[in-house]
């Protein structure tokens, strides 16, 4: 009997490996080269538009990022601010919206509404940026037209350093809140209905249900969505490219845009890779903490 169990466990281990094999192969084969390239390039002065560059310069790129009053430092702070401002709103809003769609799940037309709600996700972010730049144009935009029709004072939106960054966050939220809402809804679906029924029978309020049922049950989905959204925000640059180019002043200059500019416009590839490494290390550290918290429990 004991013998048999062991072979079963062994067989399970083999199956487990076979099932993981394609994924690991893909990640290893496809992921290893960019990884090596990234780290190696960050130690050189490579400029792809200059054939005589590419010399090994040790950690100079990293030192320049720390010592200089470098633009990248302030851009990192902007990205942090972006995360701190956008993530909570995105999740609270996403949760509320998912709850409403769940509540209306058995009504006619809800499915259609949900698809409509997801429309912003289906457009290329660059093009979303171009279009919102038009809507928010203080002179001809539809948003100021609405304000005018409602007799409210007109705004400068993207042309004013106090409102530009909130606008960028708003556009981001418009496009990506549906993403979180849909993931949360997928999570809500896995919560057995009886839990709610018995809670309601006990006379629990909405807040109590959120705290005692949804949050614990959704912990994993929320954690993963948070990591995914974090990555999403950290990599947002098309929006800035299409709307303000980082301005007015440097009020919307986020780190992903700085990296993009360094890599694909200035072709300072060494510096861009060093910046990418720094950004990746920070994001990975944050998500490690998040993931530890999320994935710990059931082991």
């Amino acid at each position: 009997m004991k013998q048999k169990q062991k072979t079963l466990a062994e067989r399970n281990a083999v199956t487990a490996k076979i099932m993981l094999a394609p994924l690991l192969t893909v990640l290893l084969v496809l992921g290893i080269f960019p990884g090596i390239y990234l780290v190696w390039t960050s130690l050189t002065d490579l400029q792809m538009n200059n054939a005589s560059s590419g010399n090994f310069i040790w950690l100079s790129n990293y030192l320049a990022l720390v010592t200089d009053s470098s633009i990248f430092g302030s851009a990192l702070l902007k990205t942090l601010l972006f995360c701190l401002a956008a993530l909570p709103i995105q999740f609270v809003l996403g949760y509320v919206i998912a709850k409403f769609f769940m509540a209306a799940v058995d009504m006619k037309g809800t499915g259609f509404l949900r698809t409509v709600y997801m429309f912003p996700l289906m457009i290329t972010p660059l093009s979303v940026g171009l279009f919102w730049n038009y809507l928010l144009n203080p002179r001809v935009g539809a948003v100021n037209f609405l304000l005018q029709s409602a007799n409210l004072p007109l705004q400068e939106w993207l042309s004013d350093s106090s409102t530009a960054f909130p606008c960028i966050i708003g556009i981001y939220l418009w496009q990506w809140t549906p993403y979180v809402a849909m993931l949360i809804q997928a999570g809500l679906l896995s919560i057995p209905g009886e839990l709610y029924e018995s809670a309601r029978a006990d006379g629990a309020g909405l807040l109590h249900i959120t705290k005692s049922i949804d949050l614990p049950m959704l912990k994993k989905v929320l954690g993963i969505s948070a990591i995914l959204s974090l990555v999403q925000i950290v990599q947002t640059f098309e929006l800035v490219l299409a709307t303000t180019n980082g301005g007015p002043g440097t009020s919307t200059l986020v780190s992903a845009y700085a990296i993009y500019r360094d890599a694909f416009k200035y072709f300072q590839n060494g510096r861009a890779c060093a910046e990418a490494v720094v950004l990746m290390v920070i994001t990975t550290a944050i998500s490690q903490v998040l993931a530890k918290y999320v994935l710990k429990e059931e082991d």
């Binding site: 792809m48 990296i259 890599a263 990975t284």
Partner: peptide
């Protein structure tokens, strides 16, 4: 289903790949 000690590492590694910005992937590719 076959949760082992290494599963967690693999999961972290997997999500680490997602964090690579386009410049890190596009240029080498």
């Amino acid at each position: 289903r076959f949760r082992t000690k290494r599963t967690h590492d693999i999961q972290m590694w997997v999500i680490g790949m997602r964090m690579a910005p386009a410049v890190a992937v596009l240029v080498p590719y």
